[in-house]
Amino acid sequence: MALDQSFVGRSYPPTEPYEVGREKIREFAEAVGDANPAYTDAEAAKALGHPDVIAPPTFVFAITFKAAGQVVADPRLGLDYSRVVHGDQKFAYVRPVRAGDLLTVTSTIETIRSMAGNDILDIRGEVHDQNGEHVVTAWTKLVARGAEEA
């Protein structure tokens, strides 16, 4: 079933702040096997010009995807999440996420399309820090596959 086009452009209220912790960054870096010292050693990060350890580029997805859950779970939109797969993902960084950040996400539905029986939804998540500064934008394309023939 095609999704309601009137949801295009709709923004959802900013999420509660997520505090980026040093140990969470370390855990993520270890999980992807990435030994770059900028993720775990504040001195190494400072030598590169960062005020504290930074997070790997895709770390922020956990935060933006949780925020996108507001959209996905909106009963008025009517997306069948059991049929959803992740199509595309993109990030544009103003600066890297770093330890101590308090990040809020504002999600907006950018486009809704119907193609070959699938619903395709583009969600943009704007991530800001505790000073209101823009940190990163994440674009997530979700594809809800059409119901299979019985």
Partner: peptide, 18 residues
């Protein structure tokens, strides 16, 4: 890219299709 550039903070944009 990050191992090549050295500083992961040098990544300005990154996108993929699954």
């Amino acid at each position: 890219v990050t191992d090549w550039a050295g500083d992961p903070g040098a990544v300005v944009e990154y996108g993929v299709r699954f």
